[in-house]
Amino acid sequence: MSSLQAIQQQLLHAVLAADSIPPPVISGNAIASAGDRLAIYQHGYRVRLRDALKIEFGGLQCMAGKAFENLLDKYVAAHPSEHYNIRWYGAGLAAFLDYAHPWRNKPQLAEMARLDWAISTAFDAADESSKDIAELSAVPPEAWAGLRLSLQKNLQIVTCLFNAAAYRRAADRGDTRPHLRRFDTPRQILVWRDATTVHYRTLENDEWQVLVAALRGETFAALCELLAAHRGEAAAMPRMVALLQHWLAAGMVQGWTL
């Protein structure tokens, strides 16, 4: 008699291997052979994982087109699921596309997967309250220089050399597939959730640098200095005010410390 552990390991490996020869621990009968019975689990395993990925990677499906199915098959074959919740199965897809042949020769696919996944994880990230402009206005003038913003923890920045956001948008809206574009310089896509809605947009270069500095915990004075280096002294403060208003209105600011 095989131990329970041995039986489970044999069946697991038979399902993962998609081997047509069933392990001796399982039986067939007149209704169906052991092989036909095993095949149901083998098929179901792959379908479930592929379906889970299709839910999370709409942009990638749009970008990869007909190659999407093959891409999913290869990922499923290379990556057994390790998390109890199938919702997390796609966590390794972008990294897989970074290194696996032939996808590594198309870096736009990994980039697209990274953006899709950022949107997916923002969707059910932890709830955080957000501040509005009236609350920030109550900060005394003498405290502004040392103010450090706390931004929403669900906020992510994805670097894109290609127009991945356009593919995601097309997928979300059911629009026709856009043409692939490679940018001259990388762009930064901001992903965040405002209350229950996930947003993504391209950051201007100065906003990206200020946002990254704010995420590092730099003071308001340091953020203004950064902007001054980009836009000159005179334009720095109006730009900082405009960015702050924008971030507050978008629900990106969770709080601050003085």
Partner: peptide, 19 residues
């Protein structure tokens, strides 16, 4: 649903043994 750290995301039957 899995063993050896791998999850099949399926409701796998058990052998009906005393163990």
């Amino acid at each position: 649903t899995g063993v050896q750290g791998v999850n099949l995301h399926d409701l796998m039957p058990l052998p009906y043994t005393e163990e």
